[in-house]
């Protein structure tokens, strides 16, 4: 943010608030109030709750349990299985988003008639509500009348209709597919920003040096996209780890425990078992893990660039 330093040095460095600082305070006050009440306070309150055995099934007895909720969560093998599923879902999804978005961004970076139409169409999955997306894929995956079965059957890939979401081996991948479909557009837009910053001279120079299309892609395009990719990977990983809507509508954690991810576990523990203390502890672990992961990825990429 270069603009910050270019601002006129109006305010005094030390001493009490200047006239302008008081102005700024007034202008920022509404935002500060909202964010404090509905973001900062809940984050702190969440930690406080996680230290208590708050269960809505016995609202009048709320014992202080210290870190016991955290111990319960972290020593529960089912929690770690859920962590494994969340990790598998996230890795699958983010990898697929990165690859598909790169291909689409390369296409949309070319000049050709119809490109404008494609860029408009790109926004359709982005704009669709997750609930409608979930409903759409649930219908596509339907084992009796779904489009996936119909298509594969008509193309002779399968001899009879198959069970899709109900098959524990396929569930996570199918949910990831629905997630990827909706997340690709944003990633494409972010990658296109990176592609647009590559000067045409670089390609011309590489051509003169005798680099073929693949070499130009590997040695000019990909390195230039590094920071855009970093953004896509950090953002999409955060989205995948916290994702809830598709799990709720497509499978409710099933079949069996096949799609029982951490986000789903927090929901079940909190709103079905009404164990708020345990839910808050799990939430805190998830939030800290997300922060740590985002920080680690950004640090790692910042060092490489």
């Amino acid at each position: 943010m270069t603009a910050i330093t270019s601002l006129p040095r109006r305010a005094a460095r030390f001493g009490g608030p200047t006239y302008d600082e008081r102005n700024a305070l007034v202008l920022i006050a509404p935002l500060a109030t909202v964010l404090f009440a509905v973001a900062v306070f809940p984050i702190l309150y969440s930690f406080y709750i996680s230290l208590y055995g708050l269960k809505l099934t016995r609202p009048h007895r709320v014992p202080f349990v210290g870190l016991e909720n955290y111990v319960t969560v972290l020593t529960d093998p089912q929690f770690w299985e859920a962590v494994g599923r969340t990790a598998a879902f996230s890795v699958m999804s983010v990898a697929a988003v990165a690859v598909i978005a790169l291909l689409a961004a390369l296409l949309l970076n070319e000049e050709f008639p119809g490109r404008r139409v494609l860029s408009a169409v790109l926004l359709v999955p982005w704009a669709i509500p997750y609930v409608a997306n979930a409903l759409m894929w649930k219908w596509i995956y339907d084992s009796n009348y779904g489009a996936l079965n119909g298509l594969l059957y008509q193309l002779d890939f399968i001899n009879s209709y198959m069970v899709w979401l109900g098959d524990a081996d396929k569930t996570l991948a199918l949910i990831a597919n629905a997630f990827v479909w909706k997340e690709v557009p944003l990633a494409v837009i972010l990658l296109l920003v990176g592609l647009k910053t590559i000067p045409a001279d670089l390609y011309a120079a590489a051509k003169v040096d005798g680099a073929n299309a693949l070499q130009r892609f590997l040695h000019v395009t990909l390195p230039a996209l590094k920071s855009s990719f970093a953004l896509v990977i950090v953002y999409e990983t955060m989205m995948a780890i916290r994702h809830f809507d598709l799990f709720f509508i497509l499978t409710e954690g099933g079949p069996g425990d096949a799609s029982h991810v951490v986000a789903w576990r927090i929901y079940v523990e909190t709103f079905r078992n009404l164990n708020f203390g345990l839910g808050a502890a799990m939430s805190y672990i998830l939030a800290l893990a997300t922060l740590a992961l985002a920080y680690a990825v950004i640090r790692a990429l910042a060092q490489r660039i």
Binding site: I4, P42, R242, F244, S283, T290
Partner: peptide, 26 residues
């Protein structure tokens, strides 16, 4: 407006979005 804590507040505001919604439901 130039005031102390300006850039910190911008990053602070964005940081509130790093916390997953699901972690804030309770």
């Amino acid at each position: 407006i130039r005031f102390r804590g300006r850039s910190a507040s911008i990053y602070g505001i964005l940081a509130t979005r790093v916390i997953p919604d699901i972690a804030l439901v309770v």
